[in-house]
Design a protein around this nucleic acid. Structure first.
Lengths: 191, 191
DNA sequence: ACCGCAGTTGATCGGTTGATCAACTGGGCC
DNA sequence: GGCCCAGTTGATCAACCGATCAACTGCGGT
């Protein structure tokens, strides 16, 4: 019969603790995928009991959806600072973002069974579509919407392929750029 | 103390039982995804005890890999009978194959943690690449390999997007055909 | 007629999961 | 100075997982 309950983590105000938990969950998902999000593992990473994670979250489905939105949103904010559609495509396909790709693929796979996640996925795809349209318009594309849509499909497709280590991913970017130039009918900056 | 162990399924020879179990597993994966493959659920579907499934299978990872290969192989055999690259693209993007798409996306997502599955995925992608190259060559493409690669990416990408019900999938095929014609620099049959 | 073995069962084990909740704690307000 | 409530713990529950294995069954060969 222990006289004291040991080692409660430093007390935080509700919203701050919730933010800390979400940050821990995001880091965990980035290093091991959305499937690693369990109450216990998130709690461990946040230095907190599993029950506390459950207390600040409205079920695992909601946690997963929120973490996905956070990861995709952060990535999008980074890429939004890149200028030129060619540089954007190169950034998105250079293989340095495998962790994010895994999260996306897991999100599509889980979407049919998690309505909240599906909603978040659609919202993020809308945002990405908008970002690509903007870059294409800047590059002189007269009708960027359909091109952006196909481009987004190409990027996500070849990145997903990379998860199984299929062939060289080094030549993804040149391949996509060539396809994109064909669709637009105009040359793009090739730095 | 029951005097008899009830209702053993009709006795089958080893290889036949194994085939029946694999068929049941394939049906289950097609209707509920690879994630639904558990010893108990496969056994239930096959009308057989869970232990028997385990007896005929070398671990769940192997089962999943085998079922994936079977599903993709069957689909490929069907599509191989379609003539003309335009018809192939239309067949692969008309939204009637969502079940197979879910299996593919789940396979990519699970590949990093299942070496046997990853191997099967790579083998199937090689086969699909070959099929598309052949159709492109028939259509008059002088250098079909890179085009096939991008095309496969586009198809898988837009299909994955469809899993989250993103926008109309009705316009996928025309979009892809337009992109493909741009890449090839030649018009394709539009029935 | 019987016997051996291949086919089959289902209970069982150790493990993990999401969720719940009584109990404990500590800081700030009265 | 005492109390109260927000924050926190960790045990606990039911459900499910893969894997294992002793026990049972029935067909084919002798």
């Amino acid at each position: 019969m222990p006289s004291t309950t040991p080692a409660a983590a430093q007390r935080l105000a509700g919203p701050e603790r919730r933010a800390a938990i979400l940050t821990a969950a995001t880091e965990l998902a980035l290093s091991e995928g959305l499937a690693a999000l369990t109450l216990r593992r998130v709690g461990e990473r946040a230095g907190v009991a599993s029950g506390l994670v459950a207390h600040y979250v409205d079920g695992m489905d909601a946690l997963v959806a929120e973490v996905f939105a956070r990861i995709s949103g952060e990535e999008r904010a980074e890429v939004a600072r890149v200028e030129g559609v060619a540089a954007v495509v190169r950034t998105l396909t250079d293989g340095s973002r495998d962790a994010v790709t895994l999260v996306w693929v897991q999100a599509w796979a889980a979407a049919p069974g998690n309505a909240e996640l599906a909603r978040a996925v659609r919202a993020e795809m809308d945002a990405w579509q908008g970002l690509l349209e903007e870059r294409l318009r800047e590059a002189g594309a007269p009708d960027p919407a359909p091109v952006a849509r196909v481009l987004l499909g190409m990027i996500d497709g070849v990145n997903a392929h990379g998860l199984a280590d299929w062939r060289d991913r080094a030549d993804h970017a040149p391949l996509l750029m060539r396809a994109l130039e064909s669709m637009l009918g105009l040359p793009l900056d090739s730095p």
